[in-house]
Design a protein around this nucleic acid. Structure first.
Lengths: 102, 102
DNA sequence: TGGTGACATGTCAAATATGACATAATACCG
DNA sequence: CGGTATTATGTCATATTTGACATGTCACCA
C-alpha cells in the first residue's frame, strides 16, 4: 500500500477542493482522514492558545518535538489516540473534542 | 506499568461507581478511558442494530472475532483508531460519533 | 553576515497494536 | 443430555506507532 505516500502528496499538493477526498477514498476512509485532520488543526490551535512551542507540548505529553510536528502536519503515522491524548493534556474537554470531530 | 491489569480488574470488579475513575487516574486519563468505553458500547449497540455477529463485523472490517470482542470489552490493547474505523464501517456518521464521545 | 528560536522531515530501534488461532464460556434448542 | 451458535480470553508472530535523534528550513534580529 502506498496510501501514506498518497496522503503525503495530497497534503503537499494543491489541495484541490478543501479536504482529503482525492483518489478513490471510500466515504468512511475519507471521514476518518477528515477527522484526523480536524484533530490536527485543533491541536495546533490549542497549543498556540496555550502559548506553548512544539517542544513545550512535547514535554507535557512526554513525546518529542518532531512527533508534535507530525501530529500537526496530519502525518499518516500518528494515531488518533495520540492526538486525543494530546488534546486532553492541553485541557480540551470531551465536549470540545466532540465539537472538533463533527 | 500495570495499568492494563488495573483496567482489566476494574472491568471485572464491582464497577463501584459507574465509570473508570478508580485508582489515581488523572482527569485526562479518565476522560480518555471514558471515551474509549463510550465507543465500545456504541460499537456493540450498532453492531446489534445492524444484526451482525462479531464474526460478521470482523469480516467487514477485515479483522477477527476475537478483536471485535476485545473492542467491545474495552480491552486496553485496542486503539481508538480501530474503534473509530469500525464505527464508520458500520455506517455511523461523524456527527453520531461526536455525540457518542461527548 | 552570523546566530538563535521555532518548526519540518527522514530514519530507526523499541514499544505497542493487530489479526489469527486455540480454547473457554454461555445460551439456546432438539 | 449433546449440538450449535455466539461471545470471551489468552497467546503470539507480525505490523504499525512511538520517541528520539539528526538535520534542514525559515524568520527575525543584531
Amino acid at each position: 500500500m502506498d496510501k501514506d505516500k498518497q496522503a503525503r502528496l495530497a497534503r503537499k499538493g494543491w489541495k484541490v477542493g478543501s479536504a482529503a477526498d482525492f483518489l478513490g477514498l471510500s466515504p468512511e476512509e475519507s471521514a476518518y482522514v477528515e477527522m484526523k485532520l480536524a484533530l490536527s488543526a485543533a491541536l495546533r490551535k490549542r497549543r498556540r492558545q496555550n502559548q506553548l512551542t512544539q517542544a513545550d507540548l512535547a514535554r507535557v505529553i512526554a513525546s518529542s518535538q518532531s512527533r508534535v510536528a507530525k501530529m500537526e502536519a496530519g502525518d499518516p503515522t500518528v494515531s488518533i489516540d495520540l492526538l486525543v491524548k494530546s488534546l486532553l493534556a492541553l485541557g480540551v474537554s470531551r465536549k470540545e473534542l466532540a465539537r472538533t470531530i463533527s
